[in-house]
Design a protein around this nucleic acid. Structure first.
Length: 407
RNA sequence: GCGACCGUAGCUCAGUCAGGUUAGAGCGCCAGGUUGUGGCCCUGGAGGACGGGGGUUCAAGUCCCCUCGGUCGUCCCA
């Protein structure tokens, strides 16, 4: 009996991995072009970091963490999200100045697996720490927008503002009161959450409190929050980014304040359709024991994005077939200049019949099949064929796949 | 965490309801034939202790219990 991978974990291998490589490369290039530098934080941290950062009442922390003791009895947890670790790293290096960092890596949550929901899943994300400006919010959203469009995820952007310490308190109080009044309309699992985390109920699909009876945070925004949200909207309008304001968009993590946003994939039929989400977390640094530092960022789930936009499987550029005593090691010489020219080149490693090699070529979905017989190689693209010498291959490689160079 | 359905070759599945000779098909894979040196077609071959464990029975892929895994919904969130 072969040992299986644990529940909710997958292997991303060929042929699917080609698409992953493409998407992760796109992410690195795009986030880099926005001035976000790579950051790699620990995959496990002291449990306390997440309890304080994400919020002790949050289900992600209370029920969904992979928590274990190390050999000295300290409590560690696999990271369920990326922001807390980044903020911890920021504070650890002094807690001052501007940080614009991008990350990519696995996150872990002990949940019931489902389409688009795994126990180990892959997130990309950015954190812009040290700026309270609405321009930072806009920049981060612009990056998310461009990335999703590059990956090909059709989406809708929802935005909201949760207010700040000055104004959200009053809203929370009135919200609780309203929830208590219409507690009969709440779903079973949420009736006891009213006191603890009433915001949580806002994005529940089962709870049906009368929308008219619930206070809208917009009516509670202080002047500073109202201005900030207005600037964010102006910025998005200026960039031509379409969005819808949703009064019920609160996001699940405790650290958010002011701006929150969420991208929903419109092509996903499943219940797991949120593909990217984020917002501002001006109170997080203090929660973690540092001085107040503003910040804004987002995280996106690659697994879900690829569910929404699977893409196509890319094949080889050239498959070499050897005939007349031309073996794998000979083909390797012929492949070298092509590979140097940036092409993906393959051939059969085992000694096999010409027929079998051609079958392998077909299977590899290579655009060109190159038949190496002795002095030259006959490159075939469909019916077209072209005979080349070894020394010309590198040059041909750049031409063959560049429509500008091809006549 | 809760509920429903599912688990037989690499893949998609039939066989399970009415237990009974060496467990089947298609696709894929390998070899050969044909061919315009591969893609279509033809022939042959390899590959499965039926997710795992226990029980009932003369006999279990088939019935019962447990367990693990998958899918969907709920919950949660990316």
């Amino acid at each position: 009996m072969i040992i299986r991978s644990p529940k909710g974990t997958d292997v991303i291998g060929p042929p699917r991995s080609a698409r992953w490589r493409e998407v992760l490369t796109t992410w690195e290039n795009l986030s880099g072009s926005y001035g976000y530098e790579l950051i790699i934080t620990p995959v496990f941290e002291f449990t306390e970091l997440f309890e304080r950062g994400v919020g002790e009442t949050n289900e992600m922390v209370t029920k969904q963490m992979y928590t274990f003791g190390d050999r000295r009895g300290r409590s560690l947890s696999l990271r369920p999200e990326g922001t807390a670790g980044v903020m911890r790293a920021y504070l650890a290096q002094g807690g001052t100045g501007r940080w614009k960092v991008a990350y990519s890596g696995p996150m872990f949550r002990y949940e019931q697996p489902q389409g688009g929901r795994r126990r180990q899943f892959w997130q990309i994300g950015v954190e812009c720490v040290g700026s309270a400006s609405a321009a930072a919010d806009v920049e981060v959203i612009a990056l998310a927008e461009e990335f999703l469009s590059a990956v090909g995820v059709e989406n809708e952007l929802l935005i909201n503002s949760l207010g700040d310490g000055d104004c959200r308190g009053a809203h929370l109080r009135d919200l609780k009161a309203a929830m208590v009044r219409s507690i009969a309309d709440l779903c079973h699992s949420h009736r006891d959450v009213v006191e603890l985390n009433p915001l949580r109920i806002l994005d529940c699909t089962l709870c049906q409190p009368d929308p008219e009876a619930l206070p809208d945070i917009a009516d509670y925004w202080c002047e500073a929050c109202r201005d900030h949200f207005g600037e964010v909207r102006e910025g998005l309008d200026g960039l031509g980014i379409a969005y819808r304001r949703s009064s019920r968009l609160v996001r699940g993590l405790d650290y958010y304040s002011r701006t929150t946003f969420e991208y929903v994939a419109t092509t996903l039929e499943t219940s797991q359709s949120t593909v990217l989400g984020g917002g501002r977390y001006d109170g997080l640094a203090e929660t973690l024991g540092g001085r107040p530092v503003p910040g804004v960022g987002f995280a996106g789930g690659i697994d879900r994005m690829l569910l929404a936009a699977p893409g196509e499987e890319a094949g080889l550029d050239v498959f070499l077939v050897g005939e007349g005593g031309i073996a794998a090691l000979d083909l390797m010489e012929w492949a070298a200049p092509l590979r140097k020219a940036g092409l993906r080149v393959g051939f059969e490693l085992d000694a096999r019949s010409v027929k079998a090699q051609f079958r392998a070529a077909t299977r590899s979905r290579a655009r060109y099949v190159g038949v190496v017989s002795g002095l030259g190689v006959e490159m075939r693209e469909g019916r077209g064929r072209e005979t080349l010498l070894l020394e010309d291959l590198e040059k041909w490689g750049t031409k063959a796949f560049d429509p500008q160079e091809r006549l």
